[in-house]
Simulated assay, not measured.
Amino acid sequence: MDRYQAMATFIRVVETGSFSSAARQLGVGQPAVSKTIAQLESRLQVSLLIRSTHGLTPTEAGQNFYERARNALQEADEAELAAKGAGAGLWGRLRVSAATTFARLHVIPKLPQFLAEHPHLDVDIILDDRMIDLVAEGVDISLRMGALSDSTAVARKIATGGRSVLATPAYLARAGRPQTPADLANHDTVIYSQLPSVWSFTRDGSAVSVSVSGRLRVSAAEGLRAAILADMGLTITSDWMFAPELESGAVVRVLEAWSLPSIDLWAVFPARRMMTAKARQFAGFVEELMQSAV
């Protein structure tokens, strides 16, 4: 039995909670995973997992082994990278989760640079505007904007961006330009359901809260972009979401004398998995990219 592989398999079983999920992520059959765990328990002469109708949970011995094995494999990975040297780049597969529009505009166009620096690395990108289960999906790093709902997540803030009220010149020519936040009540507002509908504007130390509503509500940023670019109304969103159009003038900011809360971009790592060197370097890569973003 390969001790390194057995430890890696056990770690994946604990993190996914089942043999079948671990097998799927490892790219092997479920019997192979079951056999590996059985051999590991036989060698250690201790029960590592409790099997029930609700899945698999580690015993006390299994939890201790999991934590030490996870640290050991992380140290082994770091040792290999150090031995190969920085010029050798990264190896293996990196699974990234990101919001669709953000990845399409800011990450994917720059990926050739990252892949060229690491020719032995493969990247899987899972595009979803909703937060997914990082452990169940085998994700190494997730790029998420705004407040984080999971207080147990291991996260690092890598950028802060502005929010604005945006519209196309054609819509403003038709409907007029709002002069105060209260004027938004008289406009067609396209609502992005992933964000709050009550916004706090500030100006010269004074705060005004406005509840926005509209006839069109969309659940994905791509729909919001399509509606705004079709001159259907104005919206409150991050400048990142319309970066190319802000630069070209296809959309413009209104109420610029009023400030909206900024938005943070986070690199989120699975709480129960090792933070790999691949994930850390990718987070640094995105952080550097966002320094020049709108």
Rank of each mutant, 00 (worst) to 15 (best):
242 F>M: 14
289 L>C: 01
157 K>W: 03
167 A>T: 08
137 E>R: 11
8 A>H: 10
269 F>S: 03
188 D>L: 01
197 S>Y: 05
30 Q>K: 13
181 P>E: 12
24 R>T: 06
185 A>D: 09
124 D>R: 10
157 K>Y: 06
139 V>N: 10
171 Y>G: 05
73 L>E: 10
39 Q>H: 04
195 L>A: 15
1 M>E: 02
73 L>P: 10
116 A>C: 07
259 S>A: 07
44 L>A: 10
228 I>L: 11
87 G>H: 13
237 T>I: 09
110 K>N: 15
241 M>T: 14
275 M>N: 09
109 P>A: 14
51 R>P: 00
284 G>Y: 05
55 G>K: 04
46 V>D: 12
20 S>R: 08
128 D>T: 08
30 Q>V: 09
176 G>W: 06
40 L>Q: 03
21 S>K: 09
177 R>L: 00
37 I>C: 05
170 A>Y: 00
41 E>K: 03
56 L>S: 03
152 T>D: 13
174 R>E: 07
143 L>T: 01
140 D>K: 06
171 Y>P: 02
16 T>M: 03
25 Q>M: 13
233 G>N: 04
44 L>G: 05
243 A>P: 05
30 Q>P: 01
235 T>R: 05
98 A>C: 15
82 A>G: 05
136 A>F: 13
274 M>E: 12
158 I>H: 10
158 I>S: 07
117 E>V: 00
151 S>N: 13
79 A>E: 15
26 L>K: 06
262 S>K: 13
223 G>A: 13
166 L>G: 07
150 D>R: 14
277 A>H: 02
17 G>H: 06
161 G>S: 12
66 Y>S: 07
156 R>L: 14
48 L>I: 10
80 E>W: 12
109 P>R: 07
172 L>P: 00
191 I>E: 00
133 D>H: 01
192 Y>H: 06
142 S>G: 14
26 L>R: 11
209 S>I: 00
182 A>F: 00
6 A>N: 15
253 R>Q: 10
235 T>M: 00
136 A>D: 13
148 L>G: 12
139 V>F: 11
91 W>P: 00
44 L>R: 10
12 R>C: 08
103 A>R: 08
235 T>F: 02
208 V>N: 00
69 A>W: 07
58 P>A: 04
132 I>C: 07
169 P>W: 10
3 R>H: 06
51 R>F: 04
268 V>Y: 07
10 F>T: 01
233 G>T: 09
270 P>L: 09
135 V>Y: 02
168 T>S: 14
136 A>Q: 13
198 V>I: 12
34 S>C: 09
192 Y>V: 01
24 R>E: 10
60 E>I: 11
254 V>Y: 03
235 T>K: 03
14 V>G: 01
119 P>A: 11
117 E>H: 09
99 A>R: 12
102 F>G: 03
81 L>N: 08
263 I>T: 10
264 D>K: 03
290 M>W: 06
123 V>K: 12
212 V>Q: 06
205 G>F: 09
20 S>M: 09
165 V>K: 04
234 L>S: 02
211 S>L: 11
